[in-house]
Amino acid sequence: MATSAFIPANTFLHRLDARSKLIALLTILAIAMILDHPVYILGLLGIVLFSWLAARLPLNFLGNIFKYFSGIALLIFCIQLFFYPGEIYLLHLSRPIPLIGFSGYISLEGVLYGLALILRLIVILTIAPLLVMTTPLSELMLALVKFKIPYRFAFILTTAMSLLPSIQNRAELIQQAQLCRGVADFEQGNLILRLRASASLLIPLILGAFRDSQTLEVAISSRAFGAPVQRTYLLETHLRPVDYSLIMASGLLLLFSLWIRWG
């Protein structure tokens, strides 16, 4: 199986059942979208960051995420800062410029909403790593199966993951083979050339992989895929009281945020 981003440790977060974590993730995601005031989302972000620290995940990952997305965060913020039609003026900058929709003022609402959006971005960016880094891939898969996603879909996920290393190897080989016949480097040259080079990678890659599909088909049917029996699992999981309380808390938090927004 391909290497996941999982970081083994024995913390509270690591011990939680993958199902309850998944539910919490979806809840936080939903709440991040529902709420639009920076203070509330800051609270949400606080929960995420606290969990990050509690799970002893590397902080430089957070730094990298912030660095990588600082451009878009600034952009999102500036758009609200300058163009939000607020009523409480903080700062007078110039006369109104109707052409770009600028009122001449920076408003309190604009600042707040811009901050809310940045915080929302950070929550959305950090929530998936938080789950993936504290849960082994196999448990995540099992959680998906237990959520009654169609077994066939879970099968596709796991099998595709186990195929991944060989396909990645092949992609590398093909890139090398194309370099050897004069196709300019994939990382250099102008955009159009670079994309044209991707044809010389993708076509042999797809066709080569499809050529191997017969072998995979045999492997799949020899493992009696689709046999009509009740499946059992190598890994069994049980929800513990902690998990139930996490799910309960998620539900309450969701209701609470719905009430804040529309209540």
């Binding site: 990588y68 952009l75 596709i156 195929l163 991944l164 396909i167 991707s198 599909s213 995979l216």
Partner: peptide
């Protein structure tokens, strides 16, 4: 199903190969 599996794996492989920058977003 084998083709669907293979396509999914190809898709992930392709996701790791950058092609174009997005303006103002990094």
């Amino acid at each position: 199903i084998s083709l669907v599996v293979i396509w999914a794996a190809l898709f992930v492989t392709a996701s790791a190969i950058p092609a174009l920058p997005v303006p103002g977003m990094g």
